[in-house]
Each structure stands twice: as C-alpha cells, then as structure tokens.
Design a protein around this nucleic acid. Structure first.
Lengths: 202, 202
DNA sequence: CGTCAACTTTACATGATGTAAAGAAAAGGA
DNA sequence: TCCTTTTCTTTACATCATGTAAAGTTGACG
C-alpha cells in the first residue's frame, strides 16, 4: 500500500511537474503574455483536459507555478541573505541586490498573475500575499536603518516602507527596464542609490 | 451641401458624444474594470451595434475616450501651467501638483487602456504616445533644474527623467494610493519630497 | 484476469468581441 | 408630399479561450 502510494504520487508529480515546468518556461519566454492552457498542455506533452485533472483552473495553475518557482529558486533563502548584513545600510543594499537579481527570473509568471488579478479573486489574493511578503522585507530593511538611527528625518517607518516597496515593485521594475531601457546591473545600482538618497539620513 | 454636412456631423457628434460620455463615466465608476461594450451602449441609450457604427472596436473607443477626456479636462493647459514657474524647483513641484490632481480623474480609462495594451497593438501605441508626452513634461522639469544648476550630481538628464517619469507613472500612483493607502494630498506632498531628495542638489 | 487511476478524446456551455445584413425611423431636399 | 440618405435597431452568426462533462483507452498492480 505504501509502495503503491509512493509510486502513485511519483507519477502524479511527474506529469504535474512537467505541466508546471512548461507553464514556467512558456511564461518566461512569452513574458507572461499570450500563454494559453492549450499551449501549456502541448508543451507538457499532455492533452488540454489533463491539465484540468491537476489544476482546477488557470488561476490556480499560475499560482502553483509561482510556488514551484519559489521552491526551485530557493527564493526565501536568496532574499533572506540580506538579513546577515551588519548595518542597516548594508542590509538595504543587499536586499535590493537580491531582489534585482531575482525579479527578472520571475517576471513572466508575475506579469501573468498581475493580468489575472484584475478579473480573478484567487489570483488577486495570491498576488497580494506574495507582495505582502516583499513588503515585510522592505519593512525589515527600513527598521534596520531606523535601529542604526539612519532613517531620514521626517520619514516614518511606514512611509519609508511604502516608498521602498513601490520603487521595488514589479511594475516599477517593468518601467525602468522595459520603458527606460535600464540593464539589470544599472537597475540594481540606481535603485540602491535612489533608496539611499530617499531613505537614509544624509 | 455645407449646411447638410454641418448638421450631419452635429448629429453624429451627439450620439458619438453620448457614447464617449458613457464610456468615461462607466470606466471612472468601475475603475477601468469590467466595462463591456454592451454596458457602454446601454448607458448611452443605444444598441450595442450602434457603438460599432461610431468606433471600429473597443480599443479605438477607449482611445477616443481619452482624447475626449483631454478636450473636456483641458489636460494640456493644466499640465502646462508648471511652465510658468520661475525656478526649476518650483517647476518640478508645480508639475507634480498638476499631475497629482489630474491622475485620479483619468485613472479609470488609463487602467482600461493599460489592460488592453498587453493584447492590442493599437492600444499599446496610443498608450505609449500619451506616456511619451508625460515623459517630455518630466524631461522639461529636469532640464529646468539643470539650467539652475540644481540637478543632483551624478545624475544625467536622461536618468533623472527616467526616475521622475517612473515614480510619477500611473502604476506607481496606483501602488501608492491603492496599496499603500496614500490620499491625494499625501501623494502630492510626498512625491514632491521624494523628487526633491532624489533629483535636487542638496 | 480484473480493477483502478491517469490520461485521451469528443462534445458542449459560456461570455465577450466583432461581422453581416435586413429593416425601421427620422430628417432633409425637391 | 414623396423620395433619398443616414442613423440606428434587430437578429443571427463567427470566433476564441476557459471550463465542464462523460465515455473510452492504457498500463500497472494485486
């Protein structure tokens, strides 16, 4: 019985994973645009209906894909590294650096979720959850600054977090890189500088 | 013949305007979400098909609505007032002020166009045109700063414009007001302060 | 050999956009 | 008054993606 269950779940995982992997790659390639359920199915080598055996709808497939990406990318670890910094300023810089390197990898799926957010309740909730996590990261960096007494005067922790959170948002990244043409390197460098000028006592 | 043409175009304008007005109000009320062609038609008191007699498709109706809004709101005038400022810093502040008061009025239609942008070429082009106009406004403000020799060292006009343009973008406004809960007044006040800290020599 | 789960295949419902075409109604011109 | 043209209505239909439903196939396991 145990053996059978094991093999069963291995098999389920296999197809399921293939679907998730296909979704990921297609979303990455298409920058989150124009990826249909049938495309994902075809790429995974299964019928369109088989996808619905594993995921109830498109929104949940996208959400599951983000979770899968988090696992594979070890997102938490990468973003948590900044916690090791000594000073608040170092921590802020490390967080921006990690985020700047991470964001391009998840942009495809992020954009697809963002588009669903407007029409799908589930997608909105899932997206908000992820963004709240980012906000917490921003808040931690701001609090580290404050602890060093390096937070710019006239800024509350909340407002400073709001600002950092917004300039680090996916939409702002999209604007800086796609509309303004900033490279990943420039993005990281300039965001650090912007955050420093805005948030750190001079 | 002239008279007839005149009366004709007056009549066309009437229904046409009613459609544009309805589109505007619905988009404003629905914050750009879930507004269908049939909703607009119903609100304008015409059949859905009649809308297609005046606008070839949804994208063009949305675009025409923005143009209509610009006319009614006298957008250019309002945004151009900042040109009267004496110093670069005043000009920057005036531009942000005008923008901060203007954006909430066009957010509904802006969001609808933004959503179409991902799938519709026409919508993308129309949107990009409008945003390039905003960019020019930002660039003018930055150049005014530079003329006063008040542009922060290490910042080129281009990069400074990129930054201002991004923090003033519709997406950033959306984030500050909807996600962070900033009021219009706070938004204007804080954006001025952010722009000042980032762009102006200290 | 039979069972069960995973998967395929086919068919269909939905909901929005957009096309097509025939007919009604109103308004102007002669 | 009558004719013509424009505007709008009505009805019908094509399309496209999502999602539901159900019957049939396949392969592993006991």
């Amino acid at each position: 019985m145990y053996v059978r269950l094991y093999i069963m779940s291995r098999k389920i995982m296999d197809t399921r994973t293939r679907i998730l992997e296909s979704a990921w790659k297609l979303l990455e390639a298409g920058q989150g645009q124009g990826v249909r359920m049938s495309d994902i199915a075809k790429a995974a080598g299964v019928s369109r209906q088989a996808v619905y055996l594993h995921f109830p709808n498109r929104a949940e497939l996208l959400i599951a894909t983000t979770r899968y990406l988090d696992e594979v990318n070890k997102t938490d670890e990468r973003l948590a590294q900044s916690r090791g910094a000594r000073t608040g300023e170092e921590r802020l810089a490390a967080y921006i650096e990690a985020w700047g390197n991470y964001l391009p990898e998840i942009y495809g799926i992020a954009k697809a979720l963002l588009a669903m957010k407007d029409t799908d309740k589930e997608a909105e909730i899932a997206w908000n959850n992820r963004m709240q996590a980012v906000r917490h990261g921003c808040e931690a960096a701001v609090k580290a600054l404050k602890k060093d007494d390096m937070l710019a005067p006239g800024l509350s922790v909340t407002v400073a977090t709001d600002i950092l959170w917004t300039i680090m948002s996916v939409r702002s990244w999209e604007h800086f890189t796609m509309e303004c043409g900033w490279s990943k390197k420039k993005y990281i460098e300039r965001l650090k500088s912007m955050a420093h000028r805005m948030l750190v006592k001079s």
